[in-house]
């Protein structure tokens, strides 16, 4: 029987992008979009898993699923280039699905139709940083999940031992039976760069475009603000004791980072 691995992908601003406002909205002129970096670990893990299973004589297909505007197809193509087999693009040019609730509704609907044996996703998207969509998709699919996985080791045909990163450098270790959803953290693997044959093959792989299903957003963003630009350095003068005390005070009271 053929096995199907789903990978949830998001098309997000490159982390080097400068976020600026244009009126009340985020100014997208200078923003470059890329595959969400955590999703790349998910893709790599899907490919590694496929390779493993194919060696074991299985037929395996990796399907990338991406919700976003037309331009988001680039991220699917980039995923194809490293080895994802086909893609489903949930088209949302009007930005109706903007929060974890609506996005997870739409993704879950498509995933349900595909009947995946295994789903990988990044632990969070670096634009909305909600850290929630994948878990919510799993829940809607009634599929167990383990999030923030930094190690995945297949112990049997359908079961894996996974390590989940939690606070303080600690790890929780679980065994998971398929079907299941895993979200990838940095460290899960080393992602590969696309080969040129891969890039060429990518343009020929199939993207199925589907309309955004009926979704209910949970919230809207009512106004944005940007943190103040880094100003001139504040040099702290005085005796070392005074300098140290003043720096601690400033970090606590002014910068509020401690």
């Amino acid at each position: 029987m053929a096995l199907k691995i789903g990978v949830l992908l998001k098309h997000v601003p490159d982390t080097n992008s400068r976020i600026q406002l244009k009126g009340e909205m985020i100014d997208e002129t200078d923003i470059k979009y890329v595959i969400n970096p955590y999703d790349e670990f998910a893709i790599e893990e899907a490919i590694k898993t496929k390779d493993l299973w194919v060696k074991g004589g299985e037929q395996v297909e990796i399907v990338g699923i991406c919700l976003g505007p037309t331009a988001a197809q680039k991220s699917l193509r980039d995923a194809f280039a490293v080895g994802v087999d086909r893609g489903i693009h949930i088209l949302d040019n009007d930005k109706k699905a903007i929060d974890a609730r609506s996005v997870s509704q739409a993704l879950a609907k498509v995933c349900a139709e595909e009947k995946f044996n295994l789903i990988f996703a990044g632990k969070q998207a670096v634009d909305t940083d909600a850290h929630a969509v994948a878990q919510m998709v799993a829940e809607r699919l009634k599929m167990p999940h383990i999030a923030v996985v930094s190690k995945c080791e297949w112990t049997g045909a359908t079961s894996a031992k996974v390590e989940r990163d939690i606070e303080g450098g600690m790890k929780e270790i679980y065994t998971v039976k398929m079907p299941a959803l895993l979200t990838a953290n940095k460290g899960l693997n080393k992602m590969r760069l696309a080969s040129l044959p891969g890039i060429r093959a990518a343009s020929k792989k199939e993207i199925k475009e589907v309309p955004l299903p009926e979704v209910k957003a949970g919230y809207k963003v009512k106004g944005w603000s940007l943190p103040p630009e880094r100003g001139k350095v504040k040099l702290i003068e005085g005796e070392p004791e005074k300098q140290a005390a003043e720096l601690v005070r400033l970090l606590h009271e002014e910068a509020k980072v401690v």
Binding site: K190, L193, A194, S195, P197
Partner: peptide, 15 residues
């Protein structure tokens, strides 16, 4: 690089 996507890890960042 072209056939296998293989390069030192740090080079990936630069690419």
């Amino acid at each position: 690089v072209l056939n296998k996507g293989s390069n030192p890890e740090e080079a990936t960042t630069a690419f």
